[in-house]
Design a protein around this nucleic acid. Structure first.
Lengths: 348, 348
DNA sequence: CATAAATGCTTTAACGTTAAAGCACCCTCT
DNA sequence: AGAGGGTGCTTTAACGTTAAAGCATTTATG
């Protein structure tokens, strides 16, 4: 490449006007022909479409967006710094699901992270207010993120991925973390006869962490089992630290339920270093099944969260909202099933 | 949420005109004031900016794009079906790098996958021709993807991530896969005295696979080592299959260099199932270091590819191109270093 | 002190698109 | 034969923005 002169070069640049001149019609007629408007004769329509194809016409999206007041794009909003967020395989699954559906609808997907507050307004708020997108998918937000409240009440179509009891009026697609945690805990108790359980909790400003902890406690209570909760932050390292601490205090733990797989992995590797065998001495169950749990040794038994499916459904509902669907309170919140994936770390 | 009436609701909708009316100025004056045009008095400028802030003005991006003929957005093009591609952790790293830089420049990032050819034109071509983006980052394309040629010669700013000798005129950011493969192979030979090597190759329509294979062969030749290449497809399963096949043929393999970590992992687990110990009997080295290799047992020694850094650099160069930078042939292709990460699977 | 230049705004026009209204023309009724 | 209704297009206007040109008014210059 030698020279790129100025901001823009030739660049396609075929407009409706170019077509109109070639076929001797008004610009409007061409526009209508391309849209299959009934008041355009079929021969004209064919002539126009043929010419459009040979000239390689592609509608200018900015002009179209300006005129029809919809952008043909949706945003995926990740209210964190991109660094932290993309670290989670979670996001990959979300993106896969969203793009699948968006592709079907010929819509663009734009990624909006929230790098910092340097520009005063949240990055994604600007994106939305600028009209670049018709709606937004919000993922992995904290429990009471005020920006979400603003977003939802602003009337912009928004679908949340996850459970957000603080925003009952928002449309959401989530899973029943509490029931899933209950099931996982019960699996340790019933299938593996574990009697002294430890839960590695996630940060409690996220609803998923709260729900998973509550499910654990409920199951332990229900079966009258010794149970303890250690607060982690979803990181592998916090899993390591958690089992270290607990092991200086109580030596009887024989089952661990971690709120995600990374903590389970951290706990598992640290326990191995400390000379404990998993699953012989200690059963471990994780949560998420985003990839990690399948490849470790021993592989980690976990609760499979169908993120991709959640994302697909969320996106479909988003397009519904954009199209003007009305949503009644009772079907505003979709809940997808979480399933136990039995691997090695629990002893199955 | 009860009712979302019609396509669009209230939606911000503050325009320059609203501001102009409030401060009793022409729309142009307001526009100029917001841009710090020197011909606008400083008191007026402050008055306008104040009003813009209180009204919550956000420029309409479609209108702006239409007028100034730049979109303020770049595309990340992934020439595969999204399903397949997001499966690779690779893409997560690319996205992280791209969004970081794009955020700095206040640009949007749009994801453009290439679902199928159902619309005649490649999806990403439409995106670009429609003027939705000012440039594009192309990742993980096949060696001779014609679409890339079209893209590059169309004059649209494009930066390729990877090495693309077939498009010498395109700006690219890659790594020296051949040298890296040479180094990895030599590590097996020199550090671990392995004398009968097997290479699990990637699909040879990707330059990285070709280069890695060539580096392997070069190193084996250089040291007069018994070497064999088995063709894989970068999948875990192809790694499993490869070692199975090879084991019925020759029993002397004591070192494996896989073109990526997933195949290395597949080979490693299958070998374990077949009763071979890694690294005692067989040393394994992978390639990529996108996450998997660190968490397996044994962990996989691998060549670390700095994807995120590549993506950052590529994006910076893209913004350069968009701004009109000229690129001389000798600095069109950046090559970043690949480093050996010594873990357990090689015997280190 | 007349003229040139700087200052601070307004007017005009344009980016490419689309929806609505308008206008011929032909056809069908009764 | 004149009203009424299709049919096939054109004209007009608008979406929100910005760049250029225009035009007063003030300030500097010879």
């Amino acid at each position: 490449m030698t020279v790129v002169p100025g901001p823009n070069k030739a660049r396609s640049g075929v407009t409706l006007r170019d077509i109109a001149e070639k076929v001797n019609l008004s610009v409007s007629a061409v526009s209508m022909a391309l849209q299959d408007h009934p008041r355009i004769g079929s021969d004209t329509r064919l002539r126009v479409k043929g010419m459009a194809k040979t000239l390689g016409y592609v509608p200018n999206s900015a002009a179209r967006a300006l005129r029809v007041r919809t952008a043909g794009a949706i945003a995926v909003i990740v209210p964190n710094t991109s660094q932290h967020v993309f670290g989670h395989a979670y996001f990959m699954h979300v993106l896969t699901g969203v793009t699948q559906v968006a592709n079907e609808k010929d819509a663009q997907v734009i990624i909006s992270t929230n790098p910092d507050e340097s520009h005063g307004m949240a990055a994604y708020e600007r994106v939305i207010r600028s009209g670049s997108v018709d709606g937004a998918i919000v993922t992995s937000a904290a429990v009471q993120d005020n920006n979400i409240g603003d977003l939802v009440s602003s009337g912009i179509p928004v679908v949340l991925v996850g459970r957000f009891p603080y925003f009952p009026e928002a449309v959401s697609v989530g899973v029943d973390d509490e029931a899933a945690a209950y099931a996982a805990t019960e699996h340790l108790i019933l299938a593996h006869s574990r009697t002294s359980l430890l839960h590695l909790s996630g940060p409690l400003d996220h609803q998923s962490a709260i729900d998973r902890r509550n499910g654990f406690i409920a199951a332990a209570d229900r079966h009258g089992i010794v149970a303890e909760v250690v607060l982690g932050d979803y990181s592998e390292d916090s899993g390591r630290v958690a089992v270290e601490a607990i092991h200086t205090i109580r030596h009887t733990v024989d089952g661990i339920f971690a709120a995600n797989d990374e903590m389970a992995f951290g706990a598992m590797t640290r326990l191995a270093e400390l000379g404990h065998t998993v699953p012989a001495q200690i059963s471990i169950i994780g949560f998420d099944d985003f990839g990690l749990s399948r490849v470790t040794s021993p592989s980690i038994t976990t609760m499979h969260v169908p993120v991709e499916e959640m994302a697909r459904l969320a996106t479909e509902r988003l397009f519904g909202l954009i199209a003007g669907d009305t949503v009644t309170p009772q079907d505003a919140h979709a809940i997808l099933p979480v399933t136990l994936v039995e691997r090695q770390s629990c002893g199955c």
